[in-house]
Simulated assay, not measured.
Amino acid sequence: MKKTRKYLSEYSVHICSSKWLMMPSDQIQSEGTMDEEAENVSKTCHIYLICRRPSTYFIKDTMKHDGETLEVDVGYKIDGKEEKFSYKGEFPLLDGAVTLAVSDYPHREITTYDQEGKKVRGLPASVISVNQGWESPLKQLEVLYIGQAFGNGTRSAHERLKSHSTLQKILADSYHKYPDSEISVLMVKFEPYQLLITMDGSSNVKNDNNVENNRFRSILENSLSEKQQIGIVEAALIRYFQPFYNDKFKIKFPSPKVKVLKKCYELDFSGLVVEINTQELMFLLYSKERGLRDHHICNVDISDEKSRAGFFYVNLGSGNMVKISDCIEPSSYRKS
Score class of each variant (00 low, 15 high):
Gln140Met: 14
Val127Cys: 01
Arg121Lys: 15
Gln148Gly: 05
Gly153Pro: 02
Leu196Gly: 14
Val120Ser: 05
Gly122Glu: 10
Ser174Cys: 15
Val127Arg: 14
Leu161Met: 08
Ile128Phe: 09
Ser165Asn: 14
Thr111Glu: 11
Leu195Thr: 07
Leu144Asp: 05
Val143Arg: 01
Val185Tyr: 07
Tyr105Met: 12
Lys162His: 00
Pro137Val: 07
Gln132Thr: 15
Asp200Met: 07
Ser174Lys: 06
Glu182Leu: 08
Tyr175Lys: 15
Lys169Phe: 04
Val130Asp: 14
Ser165Ala: 13
Asp200Cys: 05
Ile146Lys: 09
Leu196Ala: 13
Ile146Phe: 01
Glu159Trp: 01
Lys118Ala: 04
Glu191Gly: 12
Pro179Leu: 05
Ser126Ile: 03
Arg121Ile: 09
Gln115Leu: 14
Gln115Tyr: 06
His107Val: 06
Gln140Leu: 13
Thr112Gly: 02
Val185Lys: 05
Ser165Val: 13
Gly147Glu: 01
Arg108Leu: 13
Gln194Asn: 14
Met187Gly: 02
Ile110Ser: 11
Ser103Gly: 13
Gln140Trp: 02
Gly122His: 08
Ala172His: 00
Phe190Pro: 15
Ser181Tyr: 12
Ser156Ile: 10
Ser136Val: 14
Tyr178Thr: 04
Gly153Leu: 03
Arg108Ile: 11
Lys169Cys: 11
Phe190His: 09
Ala125Met: 04
Thr166Asn: 04
Ile146Trp: 08
Thr111Gly: 00
Gln168Val: 01
Gln148His: 05
Tyr113Ser: 07
Val130Met: 12
Pro106Arg: 03
Gln148Glu: 15
Gly147Ile: 02
Leu141Ile: 09
Gly133Cys: 09
Tyr178Ser: 12
Glu135Pro: 04
Ser163Thr: 09
Ile146Cys: 06
Val102Pro: 01
Tyr175Gly: 12
Thr154Ser: 14
Leu195Gln: 06
Ile183Asp: 04
Pro192Cys: 06
Pro137Tyr: 04
Lys169Val: 12
Val188Asn: 07
Ser163Cys: 08
Asn152Lys: 12
Asp173Trp: 04
Ser156Trp: 00
His158Trp: 06
Leu186Glu: 03
Leu138Val: 02
Gln115Glu: 15
Ile197Trp: 03
Val127His: 11
Ala101Arg: 10
Asp114Val: 11
Lys118Thr: 02
Ala149Thr: 14
Leu195Asn: 01
Asp104His: 10
Ile128His: 07
Glu109Gln: 11
Ile183Gly: 05
His176Tyr: 13
Val127Tyr: 11
Val98Tyr: 01
Ile197Ser: 07
Val185Trp: 00
Ser126Trp: 04
His164Phe: 00
Ile183Thr: 02
Ser103Met: 08
Asn131Ser: 14
His107Ser: 08
Tyr105Ser: 12
Ile128Asn: 07
Asn131Cys: 12
Val98Cys: 01
Val98Met: 02
Ser126Gly: 00
Leu144Ile: 06
Pro192Ala: 09
Glu142Pro: 06
Ser174Arg: 12
Arg155Ala: 05
Pro124Gln: 00
Ile183His: 11
Ile197Glu: 08
Leu144Gln: 11
Ser103Asp: 14
Lys169Gly: 08
Leu186Met: 00
Val98Ala: 00
Ala97Phe: 06
Thr111Trp: 13
Ala125Glu: 04
Thr154Cys: 07
Leu167Val: 01
Leu144Tyr: 05
Thr99Cys: 09
Phe190Asn: 12
Lys139Tyr: 04
Ile170Phe: 04
